Structures are given as structure tokens and as C-alpha cells.
Amino acid sequence: MRLPDFEAWAVFARVAEAGSLSRAAEDLGLSKATVSKAVSRLEARIGARLFNRTSRRLALTEAGRAAREDAARILAAGETAEARAIAGAAVPQGLVRLAAPMSFGVLHVAPRLPDFLAEHPQVCVDLHLSDQQVDLVGGGFDIGLRIAALPDSSLRARRLCPVHRSLVAAPAYLESRGRPEHPDDLVRHACLGYAYLPSPDRWRFRDAAGAEVSVVPAGQLRANNADALTPALRAGLGLAVQPDFMIWEDLRSGRLERVLPGWAPPPIALHLVTPPGDPRPARVTALMGFLQRVLAAAPWARE
């Protein structure tokens, strides 16, 4: 079964209202030839003439007069549906699916979402937390937060802020085991490992002059979530490479100290990524703007 030719019916309704092909074409922003073809197409489909045409006059036939009211309702219904859709698209509403790393999401995303939801009472957020990199397109996610040096991909990425990482340890550990002076010294230290580093079996450091050193860490604990390393760090069981968004308060309080301050892991950043394609729904745009505003201004991002 073929669908009705809604475009032709809408054009016919406008021509019948205007009483002229030229005036209808001007109202619709179409060429006169396009309007004439749409009317002819509709006439061919219903098997009856809708207008009697002369060089100076356009008049509805009996079939045209009978169809005019129905065509006007079709046009009005279409205009109403489009106006409602445009108005709905302009107001943030509906579900946004957001993926974020586990520790970062718990510490810095989930606590801010109540503010966003209060600002946008018609929006719902489905927050998915995992330290594994999720497939945004395959998983049906609208937005992802990623902390990495992003490779090229089809995803659209917006850099929000740098993420500083530091080698840290508790004062008690440094008092008992000594303070390493160079990354090579780490072979004699207890290193607590994070499984989702780009190269978890090798730590890489770079100094201000650009020199690079890599070491193979060894220790009693390795975890696939960086939060799981914090108790062991505070207890003085080893050193770990941790992002500032997790340890900035421990550093301020003195529970942890930076080690090898002249050396740093390769730079990474917090990115907001979205699947390709436009336009974005208003609900997605609203959450993106909110996350960019609050996360880029976080204390750990400024420091």
C-alpha cells in the first residue's frame, strides 16, 4: 500500500487558498513549476482535475471543491505536528545515556547530577560507570567522558581540561623505604598497579627536557579500579601513579606526597565524546554544556 502524497495535498491546499499558482509558490518558497507539478501529480493520482486553468484564471473544479476542505485539514495537521516537534526539540526533555569512568563518575559526575536534574526537570539521565572503554555507538550512549590521550576516531571529541597524574606515596612509606630520585630507582620499590593504564606493565615518565624513561613496576597489589589502591597507598604499602582528581585532597592534607616531582607520566586530558551526526537533541546539548562548565572549573582541574 502506497502512502498518500502528503506534499502534493499540502501544495494543493495552499494553491486553493491563494487562488493562484504564483502566489502559492511564493508563499511556499517554491518555484511555480514545482507547485504546478505537485498539483498535476495529485490529479493523476486521484484521476480527476482539481483546477480549470486558463492563461489568466485558475478555478476549482467540482472535484477540487470537494477535496479542498480535506486538503486544508491535512496541511493544518502537518503544520501543527511540525510546530510541536520544533517546540519539543527546543526544550530539554527525555533520556540521556551517559558513560563515564568508574572512579571519576562516582567522585565528580554523580555528585553534580542533582544540580543538572533540578535545572532540567524533564530530563532523565542513565549513568553507566565502567573503567573499560565502552562502545558509544553500539551501546546507544549519547555522551561519553574519557580520560586519555584520544586516538583518531569517528567520534566527536571536546577537550574539557588536562588531567594531571603523579607518582605518590604516604609519608610513612617514604620514611621506611626511602625516596626515589630517578624513575630507575622504582625497581627497588613496591609499586601499586592500575590495570587500565595504556601500558599497565610498564610505567613511562618524562622530564621537563623531554627525556623519557620506562620502568616495569612490581608490587603486592594491582587493581582494575584506581579507588581500590587508595587504602594501600594511605597505609604506606607502596607507590602508585594516580590522577589528581582522585588524590588532590590527600595531597592537600599531607596524607600523600608527590614523588619524583621532576618527572611526570605522558599527558592526558578529560574529553567529552559523542557519536557523529547532527542535530543533537536539546537534552544532550544541555548535559554537555553542564558537564563542560562544572568539570572544567573543578579544583583538581585548576591545580
Score class of each variant (00 low, 15 high):
residue 160 L to W: 01
residue 233 L to G: 00
residue 149 A to P: 04
residue 125 V to I: 15
residue 135 D to G: 04
residue 102 M to F: 08
residue 38 A to I: 03
residue 302 R to T: 05
residue 250 D to M: 05
residue 204 R to A: 11
residue 46 I to H: 03
residue 71 A to G: 08
residue 207 D to V: 09
residue 44 A to K: 07
residue 147 I to V: 12
residue 95 L to Y: 01
residue 131 D to V: 01
residue 117 L to N: 07
residue 77 A to Q: 14
residue 204 R to M: 10
residue 55 S to A: 15
residue 36 S to I: 06
residue 213 V to H: 09
residue 155 L to I: 05
residue 189 H to Q: 13
residue 29 G to C: 04
residue 143 I to D: 10
residue 278 D to I: 00
residue 15 V to F: 08
residue 95 L to H: 05
residue 80 T to W: 12
residue 178 G to A: 10
residue 99 A to V: 12
residue 98 L to H: 06
residue 281 P to D: 11
residue 133 Q to A: 14
residue 225 N to K: 08
residue 201 D to E: 13
residue 126 D to R: 15
residue 65 R to H: 04
residue 13 A to N: 04
residue 80 T to D: 12
residue 108 H to S: 04
residue 287 L to V: 13
residue 248 W to F: 13
residue 232 A to R: 13
residue 4 P to C: 14
residue 144 G to S: 07
residue 35 V to G: 07
residue 202 R to A: 14
residue 182 H to L: 08
residue 189 H to P: 07
residue 2 R to I: 08
residue 233 L to N: 01
residue 285 T to C: 10
residue 239 L to S: 06
residue 35 V to I: 06
residue 190 A to N: 07
residue 225 N to W: 06
residue 289 G to D: 11
residue 258 R to H: 09
residue 75 L to F: 02
residue 73 R to C: 01
residue 154 S to K: 11
residue 102 M to V: 02
residue 147 I to M: 08
residue 154 S to R: 12
residue 182 H to N: 11
residue 52 N to C: 05
residue 143 I to T: 04
residue 250 D to A: 12
residue 102 M to G: 08
residue 148 A to Q: 05
residue 293 R to V: 07
residue 99 A to L: 02
residue 173 Y to F: 07
residue 248 W to L: 05
residue 206 R to T: 15
residue 238 G to K: 00
residue 74 I to C: 04
residue 286 A to V: 13
residue 18 A to L: 03
residue 198 P to A: 08
residue 91 V to N: 02
residue 76 A to K: 04
residue 150 L to I: 08
residue 173 Y to C: 02
residue 291 L to G: 15
residue 24 A to R: 03
residue 42 L to G: 05
residue 4 P to W: 14
residue 250 D to T: 07
residue 195 A to L: 06
